[in-house]
Computed example of a mutant assay.
Amino acid sequence: MELDLRTVMRQFATGVGVVSTWAEGPDGPGGRRHDAITVNSLIPVSFDPPLVSLSLRHGSAFLADLLRARRWGVSILAADGADTARLLSRSRESRIEALGSLPAAPGPHTGTLLFDGPGWMECALADSFTVGDHLMVIGTVLATGVRAAQEPLVFLHGSITPATAP
C-alpha cells in the first residue's frame, strides 16, 4: 500500500496566513529588507506561555532570514485576502516586489510587516528543530491583535478559498 499523505491532507481545511520577517539591509523601511510568505502551517502550541509553531522548508531563503532576525509577524488572512496569499506564495523576487504594493505596516514589537486581516501576532524565536524535510520553529508570542470578525481564508483541496465557498 503506497502512502499518499499529500492527497489525504488536501481533505483537511487549514487557515491561511502570511508570515513576515526581515534581514538587515538598506532596501526597506528602517534599513531592512522585508520578505513575507503564505503559510498554512501555523499551530498554537501553548497558551501559558503563549507559543505558536510554523513548519518551513529547509533551505529556503525566508527561513534563513527568520533564523537570523529571530523575529516574525503573522497575519491571519480574511476571505478577501486570496490575492495577497497568491502574491506571497511566489518566488522570493516576486514576493519582495509585491510587498511594495500590499497594505502592510511594521509591527511595534518586531518591525516585521503586518497585513490586513482578522488577526495578527508578533513572535520571537524560542526554539527550532528538524522534522523531516522542514524546520519547525517555535515562537513566543510577544503581541497580538484582533480586528473586526471576518470570514477566514482557508486552504482545502489544494487551493486557497473563502471558508464559505461551496
Results as ranks from 00 to 15, higher is better:
2 E>N: 08
2 E>W: 06
3 L>N: 04
7 T>Q: 13
9 M>F: 13
10 R>C: 11
16 V>Y: 04
18 V>P: 06
20 S>M: 02
21 T>I: 13
22 W>F: 15
22 W>M: 08
24 E>C: 07
31 G>C: 07
34 H>G: 03
39 V>F: 01
40 N>F: 03
43 I>Q: 13
46 S>M: 10
46 S>E: 10
47 F>H: 03
49 P>F: 09
49 P>W: 08
56 L>I: 14
58 H>W: 07
58 H>N: 11
60 S>K: 01
62 F>Q: 09
64 A>Q: 12
68 R>I: 04
69 A>G: 02
70 R>Q: 15
80 D>S: 09
82 A>H: 04
82 A>T: 08
87 L>V: 02
93 E>K: 00
93 E>R: 03
97 E>L: 07
99 L>G: 05
99 L>Y: 00
101 S>R: 01
102 L>V: 02
104 A>F: 02
105 A>H: 02
106 P>F: 08
108 P>I: 03
110 T>M: 04
111 G>S: 08
112 T>K: 02
113 L>P: 06
114 L>I: 14
114 L>Y: 00
116 D>C: 02
117 G>C: 11
118 P>Y: 10
120 W>G: 00
121 M>L: 15
127 D>Y: 01
129 F>V: 13
130 T>W: 01
131 V>G: 10
134 H>C: 04
134 H>M: 03
139 G>L: 05
140 T>L: 07
147 R>H: 10
148 A>F: 10
151 E>P: 09
155 F>P: 06
159 S>Q: 15
159 S>M: 12
160 I>P: 02
162 P>V: 08
164 T>Y: 01
166 P>L: 12
